[in-house]
């Protein structure tokens, strides 16, 4: 580090110093609110700890068990991976679609934008009851509509093949939240580009592909990383509605982690699970970040 510093010219050195100053609040917060508790988790990952009595050091046993003798771990990983693959692309595309719709400068748009935001606002038990009620196989609104369309609706949360898509559907319904972020990103696209393209006679479809999408890639990149993290951390929906069932088809990673930590009081193993999850998400993020050089376009650079 020192060598780099010495090779810098005074102007660059000044800029770097200002950079570190700007990062100072984050660095302090990181040390206090993250390094300390996560450090504790790393240490606890090498112990057997039932929370109420002192931990016992067991070395790598937790990790050995996880990778060699714990079918639940693999099941949770499989289910979570599947969920990420299903929900991530859908959320990205639908969020963008909704945002483009909401970006129309039409009278009454404020009302529509607020309506689409509602699902993101209601949380917890009220939503879960509502979803179960909507997707009830015999009498639910969704299957009743399907029935009139001549389709026999599936068992949704209560069918092992449909439970995972049902949870995905629930999280996609909240897409109004991420549409807001796209909406903010859309505001950053200079109008003169469209005007120029229009004068050149570019079609609207072409303008979307040539102007909107490339200039929105920084926002897309943000959404991709955030949704990736969020999808891996899917918990509440399964915790409140399916409890991992039926037949462990929605036994998500964090559900397994929560059961281990707070129901079986196996905090040592749970800490190890948390660390492994972090490594998995981090690897995925590093990969996405690596590819981003090819497809994310920053006007500023």
């Amino acid at each position: 580090m020192l060598a780099t510093w010495r090779n810098m010219n005074p102007l660059a050195r000044r800029e770097a110093a200002e950079g570190y100053i700007s990062l100072l609040p984050w660095a302090i917060g990181f040390l206090v609110f993250t390094v300390m508790p996560v450090g504790a988790s790393i240490v606890l990952g090498f112990t057997r700890w039932n929370i109420v009595e002192p931990p016992v050091w067991i070395g790598l046993d937790n990790y050995v068990r996880m990778f060699t003798a714990d079918p639940m771990f693999w099941q949770a990983l499989k289910v979570t991976g599947l969920f990420v693959l299903i929900s991530l692309p859908l959320k990205l595309v639908l969020g963008l679609g909704l945002a483009l719709l909401l970006n129309l400068k039409l009278p009454g748009m404020n009302f529509f934008r607020t309506v689409f935001y509602i699902p993101a606002v209601i949380s917890g038990v009220a939503v879960s009851l509502m979803w179960m009620w909507l997707l009830q196989p015999d009498t639910g609104v969704v299957n009743t509509i399907l029935y009139y369309m001549g389709i026999e609706g599936p068992g949704w949360f209560w069918d092992r093949n449909w439970a995972l898509p049902s949870v995905a559907l629930m999280s996609i319904w909240k897409v109004g939240g991420s549409a807001i972020i796209y909406l903010a990103g859309l505001q950053n696209i200079p109008a003169h580009l469209y005007e120029a393209a229009e004068i050149d006679g570019a079609s609207r479809w072409r303008r979307f592909w040539r102007i909107t999408l490339p200039l929105l890639t920084p926002t897309l990149f943000f959404q991709l990383v955030i949704e990736l993290i969020d999808s891996f951390k899917i918990f509440t929906e399964a915790f409140v509605i399916t409890q991992g069932g039926p037949l462990r088809s929605t036994y998500f990673y964090l559900l397994y982690f929560y059961e281990t930590a707070f129901q079986n009081f196996n905090m040592g193993y749970a800490s190890a699970l948390a660390i492994v999850l972090m490594v998995i998400i981090l690897s995925a993020t590093v990969f996405v970040n690596y590819t981003s050089k090819r497809w994310v376009y920053y006007e500023a650079e």
């Binding site: 009851l129 179960m132 009620w133 009830q136 196989p137 015999d138 068992g155 949704w156 949360f157 209560w158 509605i241 039926p246």
Partner: peptide, 8 residues
């Protein structure tokens, strides 16, 4: 009742 009915 089915599990669905009971849960709802």
């Amino acid at each position: 009742p089915t599990p669905a009915d009971l849960e709802i």
